[in-house]
Design a protein around this nucleic acid. Sequence first.
DNA 1: TTGTACGCGTTATCAG
DNA 2: CTGATAACGCGTACAA
Lengths: 345, 345
Amino acid sequence: MNAMSPGPVTLQDVANEAGVSLATASRAFNGSTRKVRQDLQERVLIAAAKLNYAANGPAQAMARGRTNVVGLIVHDIADPYFAAIAAGVMRAAEEAHLLVTLGSTMRRPERELDYLQVLRGQRSRAVILAGSRVDDPELLARLREECEAFERAGGRVVVISQQKLPLDTLVVENRSGAKALAQQLASLGYQRFAVLAGPARLLTARDRVQGIREGLAAVGLPAPVVLHGAFTRDGGHDAMSHLLESRAEVDCVVAVNDVMAVGAMAACRDAGLHLPRDVALAGFDDIATLRDVHPKLTTVRLPLERMGEIALELVTTASAGGAHRTRRIRGEVLIRESTPRHSAR
Amino acid sequence: MNAMSPGPVTLQDVANEAGVSLATASRAFNGSTRKVRQDLQERVLIAAAKLNYAANGPAQAMARGRTNVVGLIVHDIADPYFAAIAAGVMRAAEEAHLLVTLGSTMRRPERELDYLQVLRGQRSRAVILAGSRVDDPELLARLREECEAFERAGGRVVVISQQKLPLDTLVVENRSGAKALAQQLASLGYQRFAVLAGPARLLTARDRVQGIREGLAAVGLPAPVVLHGAFTRDGGHDAMSHLLESRAEVDCVVAVNDVMAVGAMAACRDAGLHLPRDVALAGFDDIATLRDVHPKLTTVRLPLERMGEIALELVTTASAGGAHRTRRIRGEVLIRESTPRHSAR
DNA sequence: TTGTACGCGTTATCAG
DNA sequence: CTGATAACGCGTACAA
């Protein structure tokens, strides 16, 4: 149109177009403490629209000392668990007029440190660390340092999973959820359990295994067979295959997440087994995309999208007195077709 | 540690610590055209590490006139189709040392315009528009304007789906893929088709319906029954329910994506139908998480993660002479258990 | 209420 | 090769 300047249109251009000063344009275009006369306000807005002005984010960030960006760090955005959390974060971020920078660590915990540092440099307002912590004291110490550096730089940090650091945290009650699941499965008549346990050092996986152990012990059942593997579909498939090869006497298999459970289902079919007749199977998370698998999977529902929303809400609200806040996220046991009532042989 | 300054540590702090000028610190810490003496280089790097310095992104963006951020705009990050594309984008972005700002439009096309404007303001280096275009000339015109504004501001735009704008585009060959699918299904013996068609104005859905129509026509079969609905699990479930209520004589149902197909499977089971005995079913996309549903779903595989990678590669490489580039993405028909060989009654 | 002028942290230009 | 300094675009004390 009438863009004489070579580069993008600046607030100065808008001010000129509206016939006001740069300061007035600034105050008019985004709410400032100071008030602007009605007619000037309108003139600025009209000029901005006419020139298709978009405020220069980096410049605003410089002047204000912070951005409207929050970082979201997940283990793997292709995993529906994290995709669901991300969806909740995005929904809440839209309402709060915040931009989300995504980090996907490909399940390498060290990558969290890199992202944290970069996001600190970007002057991100906050970071949401979604995803299980890992049992590694040295890594945890370095993570603590990075989080502290991030907070010193004026940012907030929210963690979703375990409370291992003095930060705002959504504590996912994996252990009690798994315990309740085990107890309900026991009450259905199952007695010999196996657990497809995920990686040994992943705390979410470990907590769930522990909960199952406790639940079985609480009702006087023997400890389960435990098989470790990746926290993925293939991990579930492989662990189940090993279990079948071992010819262990088992009537109920619990995978520590739904994605693994689906892999386990495939392994059972590969071996010619019929579910749930030959073996019962349960998962964890209640992944939306997997609610229609057949037989319908018994699982523990986690409010994943809501968790993302809550995390972003924590980010946008100040904590009283700088104390870190805790939100407990409880799972809900859903008994479905994959674990019918069982009569012990 | 020895941080005297109240706020975050700046490059000036690093320069002081290293006993060099600000300019030298700048040149040493990030590659510049000009060279820095080896020992000074090291002193700067050591000082930066000691102070845990993280370069101020917004300040760099101001000085350089652009950022290391690319925007990724999807319809719904919780949809595994987009989550897979996002995973590919993230992997390639990590290699290229680019940050990704995520936009999720919640399937409202107008939101793309908002994100585009904001990302332009953020001085994003580029934006990837993932997701089907919509049949709406006015919207398309506004989108074209926003994309042009974005490019005038120095950014690049890549589109994944249909080539509707003069931009770098990954053209997904939905029509030919669907046509090939229909023909292969016909060769298996199916004769009376229904299509769960998705929203009428969504071009991806429409192209796939059109391809199926062409495939059937090419082999002399009658046109399919077409039922529209949402591009989601519930959309597939509802459309299938309506189809069953209509008591139409159909031996093969094609859903225009896998997520809808899974919803349709659930609807069949709700109605007491057995798959694939009572009706055959096919989808589109080959969503990883759904590869283990039973019966295994016939579908058209799209290289979703690779598509994300390619999109980011287009973003990072300059196009010769400013001409826009096209990458054709072909689907691969995968016949699986949900559509066994069929003998017409 | 409006305008002027300075500062934010970094890069790039120009002297040395 | 190194150092001083002028941008970059915006927010905001301060002055009018």
